[in-house]
């Protein structure tokens, strides 16, 4: 494997966004890119990352290799990379370590780290391609704000999506709160759009602790997309350049 990123920033942010949800995971490398799928310990949430080969310049991977990595250790190594550094990830066949090289833009500093790998026997879930009943795209910062505000009211949020908009409702000991985002196109700045497509109304409850955790990915993308169907897990997607993505799946709470 040899994969070079123009800026370490992307990889630093991805790892930062998932390290509190999953501790040990395999980075599955093959000629289409670097993928990761891992569940949290309680098996309620799942993270699915794809960094396509086109995300790297260049990308080369001659055979499929899983790189079993402790994300706490990887975070320690990535601290040594500045956001603007060129990052190269390298590994041999049947590796004991993954090699990370950080180069300053002006090429006067090269840092090189070897991170020990681990054998991880991970349960892999097959996630079918799903036609969701409702899809809502919104500014990622707005979603983060809504989740963190409602977490102060309750540990759970009900998300209701209708043609009129998407509503987040929390009921807690101190009272209730709700936030509605209406569909809206900002002609000057499409990053501010709220776009809803719906085949049937959806109402589901989720843990805000998990949702606020997913929001650690906010810096990766201006927009976030929520995909919902009744009685299936929510998908929260942060789309990245070159068809790469960071997706979180969250099982709904059981109703009354």
């Amino acid at each position: 494997l040899e994969a070079r990123l123009e800026a370490a920033d992307l990889f630093k942010k991805v790892v930062e966004a998932i390290k509190d949800l999953v501790q040990h995971c395999n980075f599955d490398c093959n000629d289409s890119g670097i993928a990761l799928q891992a569940m949290d310990n309680s098996h309620v949430a799942l993270v699915s990352m794809m960094l396509t080969a086109d995300t790297f310049t260049p990308f080369r991977c001659d055979r499929n290799i899983p790189l079993g990595i402790d994300l706490t250790s990887l975070t320690k190594v990535l601290r040594a990379a500045q956001s603007s550094d060129i990052l190269t990830i390298k590994s041999e066949d049947a590796p004991d370590v993954v090699n990370l090289v950080f180069e300053g833009k002006d090429q006067d500093r090269i840092s090189e780290y070897d991170l020990k790998l681990m054998d991880i026997d991970q349960e892999h879930l097959g996630i079918p391609d799903t036609e969701y009943a409702a899809t809502a795209s919104m500014p990622a910062a707005d979603f983060k704000r809504i989740c963190s505000d409602l977490l102060l009211i309750s540990e759970a949020v009900s998300i209701e999506c209708t043609k009129e908009g998407i509503t987040f409702k929390a009921e807690g000991d101190i009272g209730n709160g709700s936030v509605t985002l209406r569909q809206h196109s900002d002609l000057e700045n499409s990053d501010k759009n709220v776009d809803i497509s719906l085949t049937e109304p959806v109402a589901l409850s989720f843990s805000l602790k998990y949702l606020t955790g997913f929001c650690k990915a906010t810096g990766l993308s201006n927009q976030v997309r929520l995909c919902l169907s009744n009685d299936v897990p929510l998908m929260v997607e942060y789309a990245l350049a070159n068809n790469s993505y960071l997706r979180f799946y969250l099982a709904p709470k059981i109703g009354d």
Binding site: V44, L125, G126, I127, A156, K253, I254
Partner: peptide, 14 residues
């Protein structure tokens, strides 16, 4: 209301 489903109920192990 405090109980959460787990993902295996929805997705098969691949």
């Amino acid at each position: 209301q405090n109980h959460q489903h787990i993902l295996q109920g929805f997705y098969e192990a691949a």
